[in-house]
């Protein structure tokens, strides 16, 4: 089973700051981490390889330092990593990003299954996984919370929904996005860490794998960010209760009664 895990290096959101002058996100000096949802995708891939053999390839698109995130995947069992980095892909939105990743998956060749985290914690769009499936014309299953059954030719998976879940059969080749309920990611072993340290990460460029230049980067992206601003404060005033716990509780209950809530 040949599995590609698409991952993203993201800023640790708690560290995200806005430059008051430029109103842009300060990326310099901000800690970058492997997108938490992607750790579940890597783990699921490694578990499937343990049952069926094959290969797990971590793939990402981003700046050169994203190689660190790929090495993190290798430390927990991925066989190798591929980094897609080039000035030409800067500014890609989810349409262009999923296009570049789909072309890289085709260039890797012979892939049965693509796994992604359900979304990245910086963009929070959840659009790249289904976008990859659409570019490839492959089947997709999103918000996967459990792989119930697996064969060499397909999977039976549970998809999480707001009102429960459903079970569906997906034949390969397919793209899955996974939620955190699916597994418990392993901690890297010493051997894993050594493998990650030694691993060489090849850097691919869009031209090398036949990406159409008009479909990548800013030019290939249908959407444009026109402005950014801080979120507005909630209107209204705050009533502060700062007496003893007992007094505050009484005042709060009285207020909720006054509003006919209790």
């Amino acid at each position: 089973m040949k599995i590609v895990v698409c991952i993203k290096q993201v800023p640790a959101t708690s560290d995200a700051k806005i430059d008051p002058e430029t109103k842009r996100i300060v990326r310099e000096g901000v800690k970058a981490v492997l997108n938490p949802f992607d750790t579940y995708a890597v783990e699921e891939a490694v578990q499937l390889r343990a049952r069926f053999g094959g290969e797990v390839i971590a793939l990402t698109m981003g700046p050169e330092r994203a190689a660190i995130a790929l090495k993190e995947c290798i430390s927990v069992g991925a066989d190798r990593g591929v980094l897609h980095a080039d000035r030409a892909i800067a500014g890609s939105d989810t349409w262009a990003t999923s296009y570049v990743l789909s072309q890289a998956i085709l260039a890797i060749g012979g892939v049965d299954l693509v796994l992604c985290g359900k979304q990245a914690i910086d963009g929070d769009t959840a659009q790249v996984g289904p976008g990859i499936a659409a570019h490839l014309g492959w089947l997709q299953a999103t918000y996967v919370m459990k792989v119930d059954d697996a064969t060499a030719t397909g999977l039976r998976v549970r998809r999480m929904h707001e009102d429960g879940y459903d079970v569906c059969d997906v034949d390969f080749p397919a793209v899955l996005t996974v939620v955190k309920d699916i597994n418990v990611p392993r901690i890297p072993t010493l051997r894993g860490r050594l493998a990650a340290e030694k691993a060489e990460i090849p850097v691919w460029k869009p031209a090398d794998i036949g990406c159409a230049p008009e479909l990548i980067g800013l030019d290939g992206s249908p959407t444009r960010v026109v402005r950014t601003q801080p979120p507005p404060p909630r209107s209204g005033t705050t009533t502060v209760l700062d007496g003893s716990a007992r007094d505050s509780a009484r005042a709060l209950v009285a207020e909720l009664r006054r509003r006919s809530i209790l």
Binding site: Q127, A134, T142, Y143, P222
Partner: peptide, 23 residues
């Protein structure tokens, strides 16, 4: 932007070469 909408619409946007903004 439900689990179903977020599965379906990105696929449509790619196929239709349309821009899509989430949430």
């Amino acid at each position: 932007a439900t689990t179903r909408g977020r599965a379906l619409i990105p696929r449509v946007a790619v196929m239709a070469r349309a821009g899509l903004t989430a949430d």
